[in-house]
Simulated scan of single mutants.
Amino acid sequence: MASTALEIIAFVVSISGWLLVSSTVPTDYWKVSTNDGTVITTATFWANLWKTCVTDSTGVSNCKDFPSMLALDGYIQACRGLMIAAVSLGFFGSIIALFGMKCTKVGGSEKAKAKIACLAGIVFVLSGLCSMTGCSLYANKITTEFFDPLYIDQKYELGAALFIGWSGASLCIIGGVIFCFSIYESNKTPRMGYAYNGPTSVVSSRTKHHGGGEGKTSNPSKQFDKNAYV
């Protein structure tokens, strides 16, 4: 019963993390222009994995899609691949988890379900690691440019999408670990003890077979006394 509850908790946590990771990919604000050292802000620059935009003081945004995938910076291409891999792994992990959970009627025997659930946990952990790596790589690029005194172009700060991606990745990893821990709990089955009664002699077995038990054997000294032949 405890392992079933752990599997349900792991499934909910993992699915929540996967949804957060999936919502990170189309989110606009991966990086936002910094206001450090400026007195009057007339425009806000921001970008994500697919486009770069500028929003003026009236709230009107003008966006420009990245023209060519091959002409992009290496870190953006890597982040795209990692985030798409994270979303794909989370999708397959959710399907595998449905087959491996004890509360479902698919997946085969208990032993087969345990292996499937463990596989789902590993897939969710991989999904979380991909998302964590992609967001960290993007954030490293932003912080490197921000603290570089020789960098004279527009500097950016961390956007909201990065924090959402980190949160989703953490939930996926936690859910995958709980999946594996629930399998460990289900394998801890109690062992039945057997009492050892010792070897059974031939006489005692014959006595039991003929219905003779304890207290039914007669004592010859009690049947014949000294006046028996008088």
Score class of each variant (00 low, 15 high):
Thr143Val: 12
Leu150Gly: 11
Phe124Lys: 00
Met132Leu: 13
Ala114Asp: 10
Glu157Asn: 11
Tyr151Thr: 04
Leu150Asp: 14
Ala114Gln: 11
Leu129Thr: 08
Tyr138Pro: 05
Thr144Gln: 13
Lys111Ala: 15
Ser127Gln: 01
Glu157Thr: 11
Ala114Met: 15
Lys155Thr: 03
Gly134Tyr: 09
Lys113Glu: 06
Cys135Lys: 02
Ser131Glu: 12
Ala120Leu: 05
Ala112Thr: 15
Pro149Gly: 04
Asn140Trp: 07
Leu150Cys: 13
Ala117Thr: 09
Leu150Tyr: 14
Phe124Thr: 00
Gly128Glu: 03
Leu150Ser: 13
Ile142Tyr: 00
Thr133Asn: 04
Gly121Cys: 01
Leu129Lys: 02
Asn140Tyr: 07
Ser136Pro: 06
Lys111Ile: 13
Phe147Ser: 05
Lys155His: 03
Met132Pro: 02
Leu119Pro: 06
Ser127Thr: 01
Phe147Gly: 04
Tyr156Arg: 05
Ala120Arg: 01
Cys130Arg: 03
Phe146Ile: 02
Ala114Val: 12
Lys115Ile: 13
Cys135Asn: 11
Thr144His: 03
Lys155Arg: 14
Phe124Ile: 00
Met132Cys: 15
Thr144Asn: 10
Thr143Glu: 11
Val125His: 01
Gly134Lys: 04
Ile142Gly: 05
Ala139Met: 14
Leu126Ser: 09
Ser136Leu: 13
Ile152Gly: 04
Ala112Met: 13
Glu110Gln: 10
Ala120Lys: 06
Val123Lys: 01
Leu119Cys: 15
Ile152Ser: 10
Phe124Leu: 00
Tyr151Lys: 05
Glu110Arg: 14
Glu157Ile: 13
Ala112Cys: 15
Gly121Thr: 02
Ile122Arg: 00
Cys118Tyr: 06
Lys113Asp: 08
Cys130Lys: 04
Gly128Ile: 01
Leu126Met: 11
Ile116Thr: 02
Lys111Gly: 15
Ala117Ile: 11
Phe146Cys: 00
Tyr151Trp: 06
Phe146Lys: 10
Ala139Gln: 12
Tyr138Ser: 08
Gln154Cys: 08
Asp148Asn: 15
Lys141Ser: 06
Cys130Ser: 08
Ile116Leu: 07
Cys135Met: 09
Met132Phe: 13
Tyr156Asp: 07
Val123Phe: 00
Thr144Ser: 14
Tyr151Asp: 10
Thr143Ala: 06
Gln154Asp: 13
Cys135Leu: 03
Leu129Asn: 08
Leu126Asp: 04
Lys141Tyr: 07
Leu137Trp: 02
Asp153Ala: 08
Asp153Asn: 12
Ile116Gly: 03
Gly134Cys: 07
Leu150Met: 15
Gly128Leu: 04
Tyr138His: 05
Lys155Trp: 06
Lys113Leu: 06
Cys135Glu: 10
Lys111Leu: 14
Glu157Phe: 01
Phe146Asn: 05
Lys115His: 12
Gly134Pro: 05
Leu129Cys: 11
Asp153Leu: 11
Ile142Cys: 06
Lys113Ala: 04
Tyr138Phe: 15
Leu126Lys: 05
Tyr138Met: 13
Ile122Gln: 10
Ala139Cys: 12
Lys141His: 12
Gly121Trp: 02
Leu129Ser: 09
Lys111Ser: 15
Gln154Ser: 07
Phe147Tyr: 14
Lys113Pro: 07
Gln154Pro: 05
Val125Leu: 05
Asn140Cys: 06
Cys130Val: 03
Phe146Trp: 07
Ile116Trp: 02
Phe124Gly: 00
Phe146Thr: 01
Leu119Thr: 15
Leu119Phe: 12
Leu150His: 11
Pro149Thr: 03
Ile116Glu: 00
Ser127Ala: 08
Ala114Ser: 13
Asp153Gln: 09
Leu129Arg: 08
Asn140Arg: 09
Leu150Asn: 08
